Amino acid sequence: MAERANFQTWVLRALFLGLVLAILLHGLLPLDVGAPRIPGPDLILCLVLAWVQRRPDVLTAPLIAGTILLADFLLMRPPGLWAVLVLIGSEVLRRRAYRAEATPIVLEMGIVTVAIAGMMIAQRLILTILFVDQPPVTAEMLHFLTTVAAYPVVAVASVYVFGIRAHTGDDGGLRT
């Protein structure tokens, strides 16, 4: 039984890495020839937060930090800053997920919105203190809104397409 749970955990980790690589590949391909009007959502962040909320045992801290750091390098963001902020935010949500029972989606949306806002504000503050050029505040707000709007879609897809259901701490399996 333990081997099956361990195998399933590794399959889910491989699935997570595959999804992240697909999202990164899509982001790197020159599919849009014009300038984007609305910044797209951070689907990797949505994926990390949705999976940490449902199965905190699957995504380890090194896996989260490594994938976000890879995204930082490939998407030419300041390396490491967003990875650290996402890691802190995901660990806060992981601790909450281990203590909480099934959370209604509205409450989960509120918690995730606050977490995303905190991460984005912290990033903006740190980059301002370090005198790093940043996109306009309106672009950052649109990016925040699209990310928050994409979270429920990613969460529902995680549950119904990939089977990432809420974790129960006692049996190590999936809650039905």
Rank of each mutant, 00 (worst) to 15 (best):
P39A: 02
G34S: 06
P30R: 02
V11I: 10
I23V: 14
G18H: 07
L15K: 12
I38G: 07
F16P: 11
L19D: 00
L45W: 06
G40W: 02
L45F: 11
P39W: 03
L28V: 04
A14P: 05
I23Q: 12
L19K: 13
P30V: 00
F16V: 14
L31N: 09
L43N: 14
I44P: 05
A35V: 07
V20G: 15
T9P: 06
G18E: 00
L21V: 09
A14E: 01
I23R: 09
L31F: 13
V33Q: 01
G18F: 01
T9D: 07
A22M: 12
L25K: 13
P41A: 11
R37I: 05
D32A: 14
P30A: 04
L45P: 15
A35E: 02
L15H: 07
L12V: 05
L19S: 06
P30D: 01
V33K: 04
D32G: 01
V33L: 02
R13C: 00
G40S: 11
L21N: 08
L28N: 06
G34W: 02
I38L: 11
L15N: 05
L24V: 12
P30M: 01
R13H: 06
A35R: 08
L19V: 08
L28E: 09
A22K: 13
A35W: 03
I38C: 05
L43E: 02
I44R: 15
D32E: 12
G40Y: 03
V20C: 13
H26K: 15
D32K: 13
L17I: 09
I23S: 15
L31C: 05
L28C: 11
G18L: 01
G27Q: 06
L15R: 14
R37H: 08
L25D: 06
L12C: 06
L43I: 08
F16D: 04
R13E: 03
A22Q: 07
L15G: 12
D32M: 07
